[in-house]
């Protein structure tokens, strides 16, 4: 096919300009800023070497928020990897009105975090539905201040993160389920396998590629958690629900410590990069085994 040598680049230009200006250039600048004392007040950033990183590693709040983020990851990821599998199996059946249920489960995914957060603040209120339900079945005796107590705030928000993500990961598993050939199940049925045996021996192994995708996606998302915290607890009480991104946000935009916040951002980037690389390695291994 014939075209002028610069034609491909003309087509690439607008998109690459956006990505260059708003991702590549800022990326390099963020790394540079993390070695400076830039705070928006002094006109030019001064190079300070590793000072920000040294200060960061001695900052109790940084460790507190990093720990909270890792607790978040450890609790939310298994829930978001496992629960949607069963949800997908449930809605993959041929039942009347099943499409309606699938769509209903997807509603939290399309709602903005602000509305979801408001709805759950109301559920978690002292005289709210959550306390009422748990008291009626006898799990708790007195109403719990879910979002304003240091013991529960982080976990209460986690539950909402899981709730909002279920529908999305369910759809990913649903696509995986529909790719499993029916004759596998038919053969197992003839051999007298129970539902549970079929799930463990056929469904879960056949879903492995989707499970890997969901694990990586939900891990990266957990590292970046911010909106639900900002809206429901504001990081409180006493920083008990403050996450790493919240820390970066406050350092950068409340205290204007741009250099310091960038250093924390680089730490975040390096952690998420580990997950991305794991993902790439698994994808490559899969390609090789196919070839």
């Amino acid at each position: 096919m014939k075209f002028k040598p610069w034609t491909p680049f003309l087509f690439l230009l607008p998109g690459c300009m956006i990505l260059g200006a708003f991702i590549f250039y800022p990326m390099l600048q963020a790394i540079w800023l993390s070695f400076t004392d830039y705070n928006m007040i002094v006109p030019a950033p001064n190079f300070v070497g590793m000072e920000n990183y040294e200060a960061l590693f001695q900052d109790d709040l940084f460790w507190k928020t990093l720990t909270n983020t890792l607790i978040y990851l450890v609790c939310v990821v298994p829930a978001l990897v496992i629960l949607p599998i069963f949800l997908a199996i449930l809605v993959n059946q041929k039942l009347k009105g099943i499409g309606f249920f699938r769509s209903a489960y997807y509603i939290p995914v399309v709602t903005s975090w602000v509305v979801a957060g408001i709805a759950w603040e109301w559920v978690y209120a002292e005289n709210g539905v959550m306390n009422f339900l748990l008291q009626s079945i006898g799990i708790i005796d007195d109403p719990v201040h879910w979002l304003t107590s240091t013991n529960t705030a982080l976990f209460a928000v986690m539950a909402v993160t899981v709730w909002k993500g279920l529908g999305y990961y369910m759809v990913i598993y649903l696509a995986g389920l529909q790719a499993i050939p029916d004759d596998l199940y038919e053969a197992a049925t003839i051999d007298g396998a129970s539902w549970w045996q079929k799930t463990i021996r056929i469904t879960i192994p056949m879903l492995t590629p989707s499970i890997v995708i969901v694990s990586v996606m939900s891990s990266i998302a957990a590292m970046k958690v911010f909106e639900e915290i900002y809206i429901m607890t504001g990081g409180g009480p006493l920083n008990s629900s403050k996450t790493l991104v919240f820390f970066i946000y406050q350092e950068a935009f409340d205290k204007l410590n741009m250099g310091y916040a960038s250093a924390a951002g680089v730490v975040l980037f390096l952690i998420t990069l580990v997950f991305s690389i794991i993902n790439l390695l698994i994808a490559r291994k899969k390609e090789q085994s196919v070839a």
């Binding site: 990505l19 708003f22 970046k224 950068a252 960038s262 980037f269």
Partner: peptide, 19 residues
Amino acid sequence: ILSTMMIPFQLLMIPVYIL
């Protein structure tokens, strides 16, 4: 282009704000 998916916006937000 694909590698930009690995860079979290939460790192970029500071320089993008300055920009």
